[in-house]
Amino acid sequence: MRIALFVTCVNDTMAPGTGRAVLRVLERLGHEVTFPAGQTCCGQMHFNTGYQRECVPLVRKFVDDFADAEVVVSPSASCVAMVRDHHRRVAEVAGDRGLTEAVAHTAPRVYEFSELLVDVLGETDVGARFPHRVTYHPTCHGLRMLGLGDRPQALLRAVRGLDLVDLGGAHECCGFGGTFALKNADVSVAMGRDKVRQVLATGAEVLTAADNSCLLHVGGLLSRARSGVRVMHYAEILAAGDRS
């Protein structure tokens, strides 16, 4: 299958390894991956902070960049939720019927990485090997807006050598919340520290999730605490090792 990658602005800038990991896994499974070069951002930060007008050109750009793609994959649950759940609203607010139609065409073809693997490609064992103790934090947009359910864990459980341990209070938000992390930094950090406590209680070496933005927040706290726990997008775990 020919799959267009929407890497997202955060991954593009801060975690290019996550984009390369998606590429590696999909190519290993025999698929062709394209990277529409014009892509930038889904507009989530602007939309969620109240800058809906500024968001309109970004949505317009997104539907243009991915107009020809049959299937789009993205390693970010919150960006996929933005595209699938909110692009329509942005188009409505803009009062642009053409944009509304374009969104209706594009949005349903955009999949979060685990949705693509499990639902579209029917894969749970992607042939990875990662001999470490890992815990998974279901990020809020993946959990509640996309309903990812058990898909990421199913993929992780199939990884050779990986010891997946349950995270206590897993369904609780980590406190990132985009600009919330700055506007309400104290509450954000209090929530993040509780998440860190739960992570440390698992004894995991690696905390993984479907959103690098949340991992920047929790990982930043873990790093400041000199905890030694690494954070990694689960795509990077699925890309580790080879099919031998």
Binding site: V7, N11, D12, T13, M14, A15, P16, G17, G19, R20, F35, A37, A185, V189, G192, L216, H217, G219, G220, L221, S223, R224
Partner: peptide, 15 residues
Amino acid sequence: TRDTPVPPGQSFRTW
């Protein structure tokens, strides 16, 4: 309260 990783020298699009 939070450390930030240094952005890699090469973005995904550059790579």
